[in-house]
């Protein structure tokens, strides 16, 4: 279970999150939508302590994330897979080494076994045979998929997707959405998707939240979200056009 209590984040005088409260139960797939710069990526980074909140608390499986010692924090991070908005692949390593990173870091698995797992993960994201390439040799969409494979190498129980389909062609986007849906079923993982691509949200989430002006608004299920009466949400969903 993930629980945010009055989570607040300011960058200097800029107030990105203001006392955000949210509870996500195990296995739930939720989305957070909102305009560019509203603090979606910041929220995900706070969850795995890549940044510290100004105030408020984050609990994951009853553990206070910001009170963990280094050992426990690493244990927590191993349970969580993060897909970065910029993919953030290690550019000095091959695709294979990127995906194998967590396995080599945390387990004593034999190379043969690591090989098997990496191959399976690359197949899952439909990138068989790219293991020897360097990230710079891949397209943006391929990099995003390698990033997903890397985050999945450890079969995480919680997956954080930061803009998984933004800037991809429609076909690749659908491939990734299908993958996300499949993963939700296979791994029974809890997932948080933050994005401004509405199609992804509607296809992959059970519950949708809207983040704007530092506040989180619960929009309910995808159907309910589409008929929301909040003017900001309406504008966001219709792109400012009146249907």
């Amino acid at each position: 279970m993930i629980k945010l209590e009055n989570l607040t984040k300011h960058f200097g005088s800029k107030k990105v999150l203001e006392a955000v409260n949210l509870t996500i139960s195990d296995g739930q797939a939720i989305s957070i939508i909102g305009p560019s710069g509203c603090g979606k990526s910041t929220l995900l980074k706070l969850l795995i302590k890549l940044d510290q909140p100004t105030s408020g608390k984050i609990f994951i499986d009853q553990q206070d994330v910001n009170a963990l010692d280094e050992e426990a924090l690493i244990g927590l991070r191993k349970k969580i897979g993060m897909i970065f908005q910029t993919s953030a692949l290690f550019d000095s390593m091959t695709v294979f080494e990127n995906v194998a990173f967590a396995l080599r870091e945390h387990t004593n698995k034999k190379e043969g076994e690591v090989n098997e797992i990496v191959k399976a993960k690359l197949e899952m994201v439909e990138l068989e045979g790219t293991g020897d390439l360097m990230p710079a040799e891949l397209s943006g969409g391929m990099q995003r998929r390698v990033c997903i494979a890397r985050a999945l190498a450890f079969d995480p129980r919680i997956i954080l997707y930061d803009e998984p389909t933004t800037g991809l062609d429609p076909i690749t986007a659908v491939t990734i959405e299908n993958l996300m849906i499949k993963l939700g079923r296979q791994l029974k993982a809890t997932s948080i998707v933050v994005t401004h691509v509405l199609q992804t949200v509607f296809r992959t989430s059970e519950r949708i939240y809207f983040l704007a002006d530092g506040k989180l608004i619960d929009l309910g299920s995808p159907q309910e979200a589409q008929s929301s009466n909040d003017p900001r949400v309406k504008t966001f969903i219709t792109g400012g056009l009146n249907p």
Partner: peptide, 8 residues
Amino acid sequence: DALQALGA
């Protein structure tokens, strides 16, 4: 960030 997210 990615390095830390992967528990290194």
